[in-house]
Write a protein that binds this DNA or RNA. Structure first.
Length: 811
DNA sequence: CATGTACGACTTTTT
DNA sequence: GTCGTACATG
């Protein structure tokens, strides 16, 4: 399978003795060099964390262009996030300049949208289709579950949504699923019905959900080989990053794209999945495929990622070349040793050891707080300390397992004046008022989308409720017109004159905005049309007025958010002079707001471990390293769950360049109740001599108590890193306790949690507390591990104590 | 049809 | 502590 351009690579026809891409190889190690220069049909780059894979990938692309083996338009590079795509584009651009234009560097989803917009009319959609995010699709599924009375069969909207999503990721549809399902189970039948109607509703609304973007593109390629061939001929070099996190649909998409053009036109080979390299002699060969991944960083199995895509790559693409990148250029040896030790607890993985030559570096810092606020205060103090030593805020990050953990950190950071920024989390575009405004835009851009229309029907309040909505829907169904068109016939809906007027007014506003944003005669709408249309919609619909008239103080913030959205449209117009309303909507649906506007701003980044993948920071704080949180409780029952959690922990560790902190809290308020937390099993997997516990779980148990660092820590000085005694020199000396044997508690954690267990306590009892002295129990509330004693202490007043772990004794 | 109150369920991670 | 739903009332 000799590539026509191979001679260039070995130097044969390159000008003189210098390779045209020689400068691109500077500073690369052997395997990296090979990953850049290898030419062939299929290449797998197994890239450990921090092994310079982004650099390799960008140089590979640059090399292909520089040697003129490929035009920019022949390159398709897939990344995991839009942010990564932007960075890659920038880096390629800085390597080779203008010639980077014309490449497709994007996420799977963005690439598929681009294809679908062009080809939608081939299979019953228009190019104005809308994209349903998970919130939109949940709303639709919720309605359908209700209509089909799915709750009677134990079907919840959330459960139904995730099952449908999983099936779509497997390229199944309602029909094919029904064939394999146990249809004598009524719950299954209802599920299949809901799945089917969901898909019909999407089609009717001229809409795709996130999963459809991939799955329907695959369907398109399979159903219309001549369409697929267009893209097969175009993309000669396909590169996929984070390949370990691809799901089956994405895998199939890549397979479709790398087949030789014209291959399914042959009747004999049509439908044969295994004939990827079975090109006719005269036929053009399939695109060359480069995938990069690390199975140790696979953390998206929950959304269908299939690790086999990478582990069986060599089987899927016979003759594939495999390059291993194991040298790490990011972290110190201590951090890598911890990472290696942790990940080696996962069985059935190929052994792979990261190494570096930069030296051991600082030890990992451990801290155990009494509460999550206490833990957060440690993080804040430590950040301030590092900042004083010259570490920029933007070079520090705090990770956590679940989004809800960000709240406690936020509270303390505000109080401690630590500048921070939360990546992801509750998103701007998920706010109700923003979704409303976008629904107005969708109602204009895609009149078939009745979901959007239903959403804005009564926003602001127009007196249009369920009854009227149903009347409109029925009228539309009876006359076989769209929901949107039904609005124009308000007189025939059988509703009162007041409602008629309200409907007429909404209809008029939408029509007026349509004229602005989608001029009829095919003339191009000016780039300002989105801004203009949006302000028109919000003003004339009465949305702005309703918010301004409101007494709810939150509505002021909503107005500000909407102003922000208008500003976003202006920005969009500036960046996309040709951009239409449809482009705008695509962008806001697919681009997470965590993607833009980052670092430079000089603040600490807070994010989930999932979001952290692919990023790196000088100092990293891994918080909430507790059982039931990391690993998360829910993962325990899922096949492969605990191992995936371990990989998540591994990903977190390997983000750190110089300083890693792991922290946990002994108690955590969740859901209003305080619960006792146990140190994570993963902590024990880190060799004890790598962690310098400022305050180990053992310390906390020994001293016990509800004393909160968050409340009294301001006067404290965070100790200097590395030096000093093992337990940190800023802590109150442990009273009375024999100096603990250092080998005893670091990492020997769960066994030593203080446990008063079944201590009998009742109102009226007198107790002694290690820190608070004597007091009298007023009441006992809660049960089991969450039993709380309300105690009035003689000297410090009333306190609430968790009976199970408080350092108390009965008198 | 809109508003207010009470109750319950729930929180894993994301394009 | 938060969200959304169910019900009762105006």
């Amino acid at each position: 399978m000799t590539d026509a351009s191979t001679p260039l690579i070995v130097g044969g026809s390159a000008p003189a003795d210098a390779r045209p891409d020689a400068d691109l190889l500077e500073g690369l190690n052997g395997p990296q060099r090979e990953a850049v220069t290898y030419r062939g049909q299929a290449l797998l780059i197994v890239a450990g964390a921090g092994s310079g894979k982004t650099s390799v990938l960008t140089r590979r692309i640059a090399s292909l262009l520089r040697t003129r083996e490929a035009y920019p338009s022949q390159i398709l590079a897939i990344t995991f996030t839009n942010k990564a795509a932007g960075e890659m584009r920038e880096r390629v651009h800085s390597l080779i300049g203008q010639r980077a234009d014309g490449m497709w560097i994007s996420t799977f989803h963005s690439a598929c949208v681009r294809i679908l917009r062009r080809e939608a009319q081939q299979f019953g959609f228009t190019k104005a289709f809308t994209i349903y995010d998970s919130g939109d699709s949940r709303a639709l599924i919720k309605r359908l579950v209700k209509e089909h009375e799915g709750d009677a069969f134990g079907l919840t909207p959330a459960g139904t949504q995730s099952r449908i999503s999983k099936l779509k990721n497997e390229l199944a549809d309602a029909e094919s699923y029904a064939r394999s399902a146990n249809m004598s189970d009524p719950a299954e039948r209802v599920f299949v019905e809901i799945f089917g109607s969901y898909q019909r509703e999407l089609q009717r609304a001229n809409a795709f959900d996130f999963d459809d973007l991939i799955a329907q593109t695959v369907y398109l390629f399979r159903a219309f080989p001549q369409v697929a061939d267009v893209y097969r001929k175009r993309f000669r070099h396909i590169l996929v990053d984070e390949y370990q996190d691809t799901n089956h649909a994405q895998y199939a998409l890549i397979h479709e794209l790398t087949r030789p053009p014209g291959s399914d036109a042959e009747p004999m080979s049509a439908g044969g999945g295994m004939m990827i390299f079975d090109a006719e002699p005269e036929a053009e060969s399939g695109a060359s495929l480069t995938v990069v991944g690390d199975s140790d960083q696979s953390i998206y199995a929950f959304r269908g990622a299939d690790i086999r895509n990478i582990s069986e790559f060599e089987r899927d693409y016979p003759g594939a070349k495999v390059v291993l990148l194991e040298q790490n250029y990011r972290s110190t040896q201590n951090i890598l040793s911890a990472a290696n030790a942790v990940i080696s607890n996962n069985f059935d993985r190929k052994d792979k050891k990261l190494w570096t030559d930069v030296g051991a570096g600082d030890p990992i810092i451990g801290f155990t707080g009494y509460s999550q606020h206490d833990e957060a205060q440690f993080v804040a103090d430590e950040i301030e300390s590092l900042h004083r030593k010259g570490v920029d805020y933007s070079q520090m990050a705090v990770f956590y397992r679940t989004n809800s953990q960000s709240r406690a950190l936020e509270e303390i950071f505000i109080r401690s004046a630590v500048p921070y920024k939360i990546m992801g989390g509750t998103k701007f575009y998920e706010r109700a008022e923003i979704k409303d405004a976008l629904a107005y835009l969708v109602a204009v851009a895609n009149p078939a989308d009745s979901m959007a229309l239903r959403r804005i029907l009564n926003r602001p309040r127009r007196g249009i409720g369920d009854v009227t909505e149903t009347a409109i829907a029925r009228y539309a169904a009876e006359h076989d017109i769209t929901f949107r068109d039904a609005l124009a016939n308000s007189a025939q809906l059988g509703v009162g004159p007041k409602l008629q007027k309200a409907i007429d007014q909404l209809d008029a506003v939408l029509s007026e905005a349509t004229a602005v944003m989608l001029p009829a005669s095919g003339e191009l709408a000016p780039s300002t049309s989105v801004t203009e249309g949006l302000t028109l919609l919000l003003n004339k619909s009465g949305y702005f007025d309703a918010l301004r008239a409101s007494k709810d103080p939150q509505d002021e913030a909503r107005l500000e958010n909407l102003d922000e959205l208008v500003a976003v449209t202006r920005e969009f117009a500036r960046n996309n002079p040709e951009g239409t309303i449809i482009d705008f909507l695509t962008e806001v649906t697919l681009v997470a707001d965590a993607d833009d506007l980052d670092d430079a701003s000089g603040s600490v980044s807070l994010m989930t471990l999932h979001t952290a993948k692919g990023l790196e920071y000088d100092a990293v704080f891994l918080t909430g390293v507790e059982e039931d949180l990391l690993p998360h409780r829910i993962s325990a029952n899922e096949p492969g769950g605990p191992q995936e959690e371990r990989r998540l922990f591994y990903v977190g560790i390997t983000r750190a360049r110089k300083r890693l902190h792991v922290s946990l809290a002994m108690t955590r308020a969740q859901f209003g109740e305080v619960t006792v937390a146990m140190p994570s099993r993963f902590l024990q997997e880190i060799p004890a001599d790598l962690i310098d516990w400022r305050q180990s779980p053992g310390d906390v148990n020994g001293r016990g108590g509800m004393q909160s660092r968050a409340l009294n820590a301001r006067g404290r000085r965070p100790g200097q890193t590395g030096g000093g005694n093992r337990y940190g020199d800023d802590l109150v000396p442990l009273p009375k306790r024999a100096p603990a044997d250092p080998s005893k508690f670091p990492n020997r954690i769960p066994a030593k949690v203080r446990d008063n267990g079944d201590m009998e306590l009742a109102a009226g009892d007198r107790i002694r507390h290690d820190d608070f002295g004597e007091g009298r129990v007023d009441a006992i509330t809660g049960e089991g591990a969450k039993r709380v004693a309300h105690v009035r202490f003689d000297t410090v007043g009333a306190k609430k104590l968790l009976v199970k772990i408080a350092p108390i004794s009965k008198l």
